[in-house]
Design a protein around this nucleic acid. Structure first.
Lengths: 338, 338
DNA sequence: CTGAAAGCGCTTACAG
DNA sequence: CTGAAAGCGCTTACAG
């Protein structure tokens, strides 16, 4: 490994001077700077981040909180994975490396914040935590800049899908198609993640505008965002309410499960029951019937959250909450019954 | 941040003694050790990895080479994402953090090896590189332990799917179903990634055993593993060879595209053409017809590659190549024509 | 414009 | 069994 001392020896300058040239700090003559830079280049010098981090307390490291306990698909999560793709490329372009924050390390437990200190993490993106509890509170109230892409935590800037807007759009569409008795299947609701509730509120708003009453008993709650939970929720909902002609399911994954229940009792989709999902997973395009859904803008969410973090890191003020519209994808899972 | 000096002050021992107690090195009396440990605990001490890495050259950091230029789905890649899920949890349990290795950092370019040195990376898992070139060679021939999960690079331990075995199984199955003229669509072939060729070889072997001739012109090559390439390859293949009754496509994603071409010219699947894919993506189960395919054991690949890396890190000899069988998933995309 | 000194938090010989 | 000294590679005041 070539160090600044090698460059010092090669050029005749001292280590601090090399450091200043490399970092563009301190008033060196242009000639000195160029010479040092070119020698550094030719020697193939790469700064040792451990040493730099030790002195500056800045490791150029972004912590990622990425767990998937509610859909249990990890990196294959249809939303999180996409967000992370773009976030990663944006941060790397800015010279930051990514590290996953985890709460278990060896046998010992550690908090997210401890993990950050341990690695001199500069900033954190909260894509999805194990749960929103004291640990997250501890982290966001520390001096480490944070941004969240799915959770709206007071005091933390966030980039989230405009859920209510999409719910509203779903409601409008269903009403246009002639539906009046519309069920709703919610996914996991967390203290700071109320996406399901927002989607439902949008739905209700659209119905209200058309003078259609919504019966709160038409809402069914799933504990997880899984297919199995979608199946069970649909079962419970259908057994209580045969009158429903459509159901808005808070994600595609649960919609697959919900459909599976309906098919299992001999119903034809969408004739006997219309479905709208959320996420636009790859599978939705092949589903029978092809699933009408909403596509969250994963790229934009990843990009904006990276931008917010970069701004916070250099002290530029940021908006507390940015909403990103989802795209309505009309397919064939809703029947027109007017 | 609490340091070992805080513990030293608190306990009356010197810094080196604290260090020895914390790391279990050096012959301290059990009493001293316990006292130091308990004080460290109560003070909430967490070692500063930057300082530790600077002295020991070990950062407890695993570099991940994870790019997806051939399917362009990043973390949503149906195989890579799954491997990474398990690999991550295994390494975290062993006290290692993960970092993505990248070749572009800020405006400047850097090689994978430079990135490793820059971060004091201990070992590397090559899930998928940008391309297998001098940079990968440079890395695997350095003193940094590597393992690969999809590429078989001489001198590098690898954990890969038993592709030929699966190809053989596909061939046997197709023959049993009465097929004799079977096309093959290959995905990207790289210097060290010949999964497609292995799958084809297995297919040929099965056919040969049944005395069925394989015409090499029935093989079509795709440049990428994408749906679009699958479409185009199927088109070229079909235009040359109307006699085919089945086609083995090297991954599901291309199989979707291939099917889409066949449907576009009015063919019925599987009656007019049978298809077998590879990967068992979520969508395959919903595809029309539901797709017969092979499920690679993502979990096991992730687990074994983590195990190999851990062994290399402590100097335990490892096998150069471990093959992991894929599971045959029989669905409805192959017609029985006997 | 350039350099000597000190320090970041830790560990490794070495001495006692 | 315990500690004083030195060093890992870098940067930050400070001095000249």
């Amino acid at each position: 490994m070539v160090t600044i001392y090698d460059i010092a020896k090669s050029t005749g300058y001292s280590a601090p001077t090399i450091s200043k040239a490399l970092n563009g700090t301190g008033g060196l003559s242009e000639k000195t700077r160029q010479k040092i830079l070119s020698v550094a280049e030719s020697l193939g010098y790469k700064p040792n981040m451990a040493a730099r981090a030790l002195t500056t307390k800045k490791a150029y490291l972004i912590g990622i909180i990425f767990e998937d306990i509610y859909m249990m698909r990890g990196f294959e999560h249809p939303l999180f994975g996409g967000i992370l793709n773009k976030f990663r490329s944006e941060m790397e372009n800015s010279g930051y490396d990514l590290i996953f924050l985890s709460r278990s390390f060896l046998a010992r437990k550690q908090s997210y914040l401890e993990h950050c200190h341990h690695r001199n993490v500069d900033a954190v993106v909260i894509i999805n935590p194990l749960s929103v509890d004291e640990e997250i509170e501890e982290l966001v109230h520390s001096d480490i800049p944070c941004v969240s892409t799915n959770f709206v935590i007071p005091g933390v800037p966030s980039v989230v899908t405009a859920n209510e807007e999409s719910g509203y759009q779903a409601g409008k569409y269903l009403v246009e198609c002639g539906h009046k008795k519309i069920g709703f299947i919610a996914g996991t609701i967390d203290k700071y993640n109320i996406a399901s509730i927002e989607r439902l509120n949008g739905l209700k708003k659209a119905l209200a505008e058309s003078g259609i009453e919504y019966d709160d008993d038409w809402t069914e709650h799933s504990k997880l965002w899984t297919r199995e939970e979608g199946y069970n929720s649909m079962k419970r909902l259908y057994e209580r309410h045969r009158e429903l002609t459509a159901v808005f399911v808070a994600n595609d994954n649960m919609a697959y499960g919900a459909s599976s229940f309906l098919k299992s009792i001999g119903l034809k989709l969408p004739e006997d029951m219309s479905i709208i999902g959320f996420d636009d997973e790859t599978a939705s395009e092949f589903f029978s019937p092809t699933l009408t859904t909403f596509r969250q803008n994963r790229n934009l969410i990843g990009e904006l959250s990276a931008e917010i973090l970069m701004n916070k890191l250099v002290g530029i003020p940021v908006n507390e909450c940015v909403q990103v519209p989802a795209e309505f994808i009309e397919r064939n899972s809703v029947s027109k019954i007017y």
